[in-house]
Simulated scan of single mutants.
Amino acid sequence: NINLALKSNLKIIPVINKIDLASANPDRVMQEVKNISEIKEEEIILASAKEGIGTSDILEAIVKKIPPPKGSSNLPLRALIFDSIYNPYKGTIVYVKVVDGVIEPGMIIQTMSNNIKYEVAEIGIFRPKMQPIKKLTAGEVGYIIAGFKNIKDTRVGDTIIDASNPARESLPGYKKVTPLVFCSIYPVDNKEYENLKIALEKL
């Protein structure tokens, strides 16, 4: 949502994609973008990922407009959890942005919300599939596999720290989302309630 991005003082790179389609109407879309924002026409990049149109302009805009990551690899580890997935063989895999410090396999880490400790088994980056690497440093985004068994222990917005050299302050996490739609699901057999609960937590 562009309004939320503007309120958060994020840099906006306006791109109109798929201009190669027969039904494309970039002039109309450009006018709509101008009507709902303060974006100027000359800032809008016309692109087609399929045809490679505008790709270099987008990359150039990213370099010019997006500020480099802040933080230092020399400070104690602080990594922000921004997502997680469940793997039946590896447990919960957390996606993190390393703000300070370095994380490597073999390290003992913990989350600031519950102080539970885990040993890092694997770290990696996305290219776009998961690719293991030797370490993640400040400013990098990647994943951590450390035997997280419960998704509740890897809450989005939580901070991962080094158990042997813990950072004192957590990172400003995401705001807790307020549910707008509620739904109740029950198993046909009440004995399966716990199994259903566990299955839904893994989704």
Rank of each mutant, 00 (worst) to 15 (best):
S73T: 10
F126W: 08
L77P: 03
K97L: 08
S72M: 04
G91D: 08
R127F: 08
G124K: 01
M107V: 06
L46M: 15
K65I: 06
K90H: 04
E119F: 12
L75P: 05
D100F: 09
D100C: 08
T92L: 01
A79I: 04
E104C: 09
L59Q: 08
I44M: 15
P128A: 09
K90F: 05
T137C: 12
I93F: 04
V99Q: 02
D83H: 11
K134M: 10
R78M: 09
M107Q: 08
L46E: 14
V96S: 00
K70I: 05
N114D: 14
Y86I: 06
P105Y: 06
P128W: 02
F82R: 13
T111D: 13
D83W: 13
K97I: 10
G101F: 14
V120M: 00
G71I: 11
K129I: 05
E119V: 06
I123K: 02
D57M: 10
N114E: 11
T92D: 01
V96M: 04
V120K: 08
T55Q: 11
R127Y: 09
Q110W: 05
I109P: 14
A49D: 04
S56G: 08
I103F: 07
G139P: 14
G91M: 00
V96A: 13
I81K: 12
P67N: 01
L46W: 14
S113V: 03
A79C: 00
P68K: 15
K134G: 07
V102M: 07
I116H: 11
E140F: 14
